[in-house]
């Protein structure tokens, strides 16, 4: 690995100053499970690596029923699923963080890092999109908020400007009758990158029979994780039935623009979008009822 310097600021302001001063050569380190590999393999370079795990705001994990979830950008996957209340309130997110790498990865990898790495195949981003999560960004010119749905701009690219840092993600409180799920397809059962993934969030009516609102988001089938708007909108008012789930899967395919690569052909990936959307819808509706 090439040489770089390391800083571990304890204040957000210091981190932003260091980030700004180092310019292009600065890299942010949270769990390190992507950036260390990328630096080692020469896929990214760094003059300065800024470890953000000592900044209190970035390690904060707070949840209450009325406020929703405040998820500091460097909070590990493990901390999310280890909190039973959070895992119960956001099961789609919990699904994703349980399958990002093995346990050793989950001890370190963060959802914020997963978002900032901005891989099209990121497992945690589609659930965030379905929850309409917000990304809280701090930078030299102040703070602003961006919907996660608009955060990624291309493979490995996102809205963060030089000197800016993702501080936290916020997820709205979950009303009763809502449910969520995430599934990805991989050839093995663990330790793999998604060939395709689908996250679903639904709000059912009081009887648990009809979908009032739904949000579907996909991974690994476009340059960024994508929100399947047409399928999501179509689901409003539909009965929660297998036929409807299958139809929604067909509609979700329309936003899939995958590539052929070693993980699968475009045709296969598009097909998987239909299968996964159908299956996650069923799981999310089941969860919404309990």
């Amino acid at each position: 690995m090439i040489e770089f310097e390391y800083a571990a600021p304890t204040q957000l302001d210091d981190a932003i100053k260091q980030l700004t001063a180092a310019g292009d050569g600065a890299r942010v380190l949270a769990g390190g499970t992507d950036i260390i590999v990328q630096l080692r393999e020469g896929l990214r370079s760094a003059d300065l690596v800024i470890d953000v795990k000592k900044i209190p705001e970035l390690t904060q994990l707070e949840f209450c029923g009325e406020q929703g979830l405040h998820l500091g950008a460097s909070v590990s996957c493990r901390r999310i699923y280890d909190d039973e209340n959070i895992a119960a309130a956001y099961p789609g997110l919990a699904d994703a963080v349980r399958i990002i790498g093995g346990w050793q990865i989950q001890s370190r990898a963060s959802v914020g890092g997963n978002l900032c790495n901005s891989s099209p195949a990121a497992d945690a981003i589609p659930p965030l999109i379905t929850y309409s999560a917000q990304a809280h960004i701090a930078g030299p010119t102040g703070r602003h908020v961006v919907p996660v749905e608009e955060f990624c701009t291309g493979p490995g690219r996102n809205v963060l400007q030089q000197g800016e840092l993702l501080v936290a993600l916020t997820l709205p409180p979950q009303p009763s009758g809502s449910g969520s799920a995430y599934q990805r397809f991989i050839p093995r059962n663990e330790m793999d990158i998604a060939v395709a993934g689908a996250a679903v969030w639904v709000q059912l009516d009081k009887r648990g029979e009809r979908i009032e609102r739904a949000r579907i988001a996909l991974s690994a089938v476009a340059p960024t994780p994508v929100f399947a708007a047409e399928a999501s909108e179509w689901l409003s008012g539909q009965p929660a039935s297998e036929e409807v789930f299958a139809k929604a899967g067909e509609l979700a395919k329309r936003v899939a623009t995958p590539i052929d690569d070693m993980r699968g052909t475009a045709e296969y990936r598009t097909h998987l979008v239909g299968v996964l959307t159908k299956r996650t819808l069923a799981t999310a509706c089941e969860r919404a009822r309990t």
């Binding site: 050839p187 093995r188 059962n189 663990e190 330790m191 793999d192 990158i193 070693m262 993980r263």
Partner: peptide
């Protein structure tokens, strides 16, 4: 990661 030898799972 991509040369997929079986895991115990």
């Amino acid at each position: 990661l991509d040369y997929r030898i079986p895991t115990c799972y």
